[in-house]
């Protein structure tokens, strides 16, 4: 049996196709999100990779910022629950998730069964999000996937504000013009992102294992900065961008199974 999870974020679209609730047979990402052609394209890509059709899916659940605009989905579940579900599946020892996506930063505390115990997320401020890093990478003329390397070479991280993206951008510009090395500025940018996420993590209560997911988890400079701030190791979820879509696909599988068991019980009850 196949189930599908679709996670439409603000800046990327992700689809996971799951076989029998355990085997990931497709996990695709396209780096454009809600309102774009991304959702449709990523869906087609995942299906063609799996060699399946939409009708083959027993259930489809959508999550993420654009979850309500996914016509193919049978149901929507918040990205908080989906993230918890997906990460717990991959790393069952997880207690705290730090998820940094395009416009959200979340810290999610889990109980031992993988349920959401508490979560906190940023409000109306893009500081510390993927967007924040986008802006910085543009100003610094360093690609996002090179940021970690630069960070590793830093000798003296610069101070970058974590309260406002626009303000931080002008800070970075003035540091550049003062001749501060890009390496040190990037380490400062990473620290700024980390301080925002860790503030939320502290409110949840820091407990190991700590797992990071979301697009920003691919930037190891951020992961290092978070680990340093929390003084604890941070595990990066495998394929960190698709964990919420994976969670949605698992939820879809569980719901199909629950319906089957329910129907079975009904029949058994009727035959008694």
């Amino acid at each position: 049996m196949f189930t599908m999870g679709i996670d439409i974020g603000s800046s990327s679209s992700k689809v996971v196709i799951l076989e029998d609730g355990v085997k990931i047979i497709a996990g695709e990402v396209i780096q454009i999100g809600t309102g774009s052609t991304g959702p449709k394209r990523v869906l087609d890509e995942a299906l063609s990779k799996a060699g399946l059709k939409l009708q083959d899916m027993a259930k489809i659940i959508a999550t993420g910022y654009g979850r309500s605009s996914v016509e193919e989905a049978h149901k929507q579940i918040s990205e908080i629950s989906c993230q918890a579900k997906g990460v717990f599946f991959l790393v069952p020892s997880v207690k705290l998730i730090i998820d940094i996506g395009g416009q959200d930063v979340k810290a999610i505390k889990l109980d031992s069964k993988g349920g959401v115990k508490q979560f906190f997320m940023n409000d109306k401020c893009a500081a510390g999000t993927g967007r924040f890093l986008d802006v910085m990478s543009r100003v610094l003329e360093v690609n996002l996937d090179e940021m970690a390397e630069y960070d590793a070479r830093a000798t003296e991280p610069a101070t970058v504000s974590s309260t406002c993206t626009v303000f931080a951008e002008s800070e970075v510009i003035s540091q550049l013009s003062n001749g501060v090395a890009k390496e040190n500025i990037i380490a400062g940018v990473h620290q700024s992102v980390a301080s925002k996420a860790c503030g939320l993590a502290y409110r949840c209560g820091v407990e190991e294992d700590i797992v990071m997911c979301g697009g920003v988890a691919k930037d190891l400079g951020v992961v290092r900065a978070i680990s340093k701030e929390l003084k604890k190791p941070v595990i990066v979820a495998p394929n960190p961008q698709i964990t919420a879509a994976l969670g949605a696909a698992i939820f879809a599988f569980e719901e199909v199974m629950a319906a089957v068991i329910f129907a079975f019980e009904e029949v058994r009850g009727a035959n008694k």
């Binding site: 910022y65 309500s68 929507q76 579940i77 918040s78 990205e79 908080i80 629950s81 109980d111 069964k113 349920g115 959401v116 115990k117 979560f119 997320m121």
Partner: peptide, 19 residues
């Protein structure tokens, strides 16, 4: 919407005794 949906899911989970 995201917050109240997540709250709803947490309340549901509590009611079902998962957590």
């Amino acid at each position: 919407d995201t917050r109240i949906q997540a709250l709803d899911e947490m309340m549901k989970q509590n009611k079902e005794g998962v957590s």
